[in-house]
C-alpha cells in the first residue's frame, strides 16, 4: 500500500488527565479521500492537530510521506494544508495579503498566478482587496480554505469543513474536494455529516473515545454492515409471530401490523422466497411491502453505541 500518512501507536493524554487518543494506528493512502467520523470529543481534532504540529503527542509516531513530524518537521509540514474547525482569521488584512502570507510562511516563492487561481476557484477573486473583518462567515471559511491551498499542499486536512455553512458553500466544497482529488491531493476530512462522507469519501474511519474502531472502504462498509430490511404491511394485525415462522427471526411491530425481516444482501440466499412461501402457507396476507438499507449514519450510530 502506498501510504502518504502513517500513524502508529499514537496516544495523547492532556495535562488534565483526559486521554484523547489511545494507541491509534492509521494508514492514509496517497490520493484518497478519507473521512474520519466520530462523535464530539472522540479525538478527531486532536489527531489532526498532532499531525499538523499544533499538539504534542504523548507517545507514538507519525510519518508524512516518510518524514517524521518531529525530527523532520519541515519536510512533513510543507506537504500539509490545514483548514481548522474554528473560524480564525485576522481582521484587518486583505484576502490577498492573508493568503499570500500563508504561502510565504511555507517558504514558497510568491506566485500571484496560483493565488489568483485559488481565489477564483473559491469565488473570492472579487473580494481580494476586502478586509477580512468585512466578510461573512461563509466567505471567511472560503478564505481559510484558500490559505490552506496557497502553498500547494499534497495532503489537505479539512476539520469539519461544512459545519455551519450554507448549502451553496457545501456544494462548492464538494466540487473543490473532487477537483483536488483529480490533481492527486490526498484529503482527510472530519465530519459530523455522514451524508458528506457517503458522498465524497473513498474510505471511512470511525473514531470513538480516542480509538479507531473501524477503517473500511466506504462501499465495502456499507455493503458489509448495510443489512437490508424487508417490511411487510399486513392485512390483519397479528398478536404474535406464529411458531412456523420463528426460524426466520422476524420482528413484529407494536401494533401487530408489520413484520420486519432483516437479511444480508451478500448472502447466497437472502431467504426472502422461502419467507414469502412460509407466510403464504401460514395464511398471512399482506397489503404492501418495502425494503430499506441502512445508511452510513445508522451504521455509524450502531458502531459507536456498541462501543459504549
Amino acid at each position: 500500500m502506498n501510504s502518504v500518512l502513517s500513524i502508529s501507536n499514537l496516544s495523547k493524554t492532556y495535562a488534565s488527565g483526559f486521554q484523547a487518543l489511545r494507541n491509534v494506528d492509521l494508514e492514509i493512502r496517497r490520493g484518497e479521500i478519507f473521512a474520519l467520523l466520530g462523535p464530539n470529543g472522540a479525538g478527531k481534532t486532536t489527531l489532526i492537530s498532532i499531525v499538523c504540529g499544533l499538539v504534542n503527542a504523548s507517545t507514538g509516531r507519525v510519518l508524512v510521506d516518510g518524514h517524521d513530524i518531529v525530527t523532520d518537521y519541515r519536510a512533513a509540514r510543507s506537504m500539509i494544508g490545514l483548514v481548522p474547525q474554528e473560524l480564525t482569521t485576522d481582521a484587518f488584512e486583505t484576502v490577498w495579503a492573508t493568503v499570500s502570507f500563508t504561502r510565504a510562511l511555507f517558504g514558497k516563492k510568491p506566485d500571484p498566478e496560483h493565488i489568483r487561481n485559488v481565489l477564483e476557484g473559491l469565488s473570492l477573486w472579487d473580494k481580494r482587496d476586502s478586509r477580512l473583518i468585512t466578510l461573512s462567515g461563509g466567505m471567511k471559511r472560503r478564505v481559510m480554505i484558500a490559505k490552506a491551498l496557497s502553498h500547494e499542499p499534497q495532503i489537505l486536512f479539512l476539520d469539519e469543513p461544512t459545519a455551519g455553512v450554507d448549502v451553496e458553500l457545501r456544494r462548492d466544497m464538494w466540487d473543490l474536494v473532487e477537483g483536488l482529488r483529480k490533481t492527486g491531493v490526498t484529503i482527510i476530512l472530519t465530519t459530523h455529516y455522514i451524508e458528506e462522507a457517503e458522498q465524497m469519501a473513498d474510505r471511512v474511519g470511525v473514531i470513538a473515545r480516542g480509538e479507531i474502531i473501524l477503517v473500511e472502504e466506504k462501499i465495502e462498509l456499507m455493503r458489509k454492515l448495510g443489512r437490508k430490511q424487508l417490511s411487510l404491511h399486513l392485512q390483519k394485525p397479528l398478536e404474535r409471530i406464529p411458531q412456523s415462522l420463528e426460524h426466520h427471526h422476524l420482528e413484529l411491530s407494536a401494533d401487530g401490523m408489520y413484520l420486519i425481516y432483516t437479511y444480508d444482501t451478500r448472502a447466497e440466499r437472502t431467504g426472502i422466497t422461502r419467507l414469502l412461501g412460509d407466510l403464504n402457507e401460514a395464511g398471512i396476507r399482506f397489503r404492501d411491502l418495502h425494503t430499506s438499507q441502512k445508511s452510513l449514519e445508522e451504521i455509524f450510530v450502531d458502531l459507536v453505541r456498541d462501543r459504549r
Partner: peptide, 11 residues
C-alpha cells in the same frame, strides 16, 4: 484570535 495555528503548523 487563534490564528497562531498557521504559524505553528507551517514549516
Amino acid at each position: 484570535t487563534g490564528t497562531i495555528y498557521e504559524v505553528l503548523s507551517a514549516p
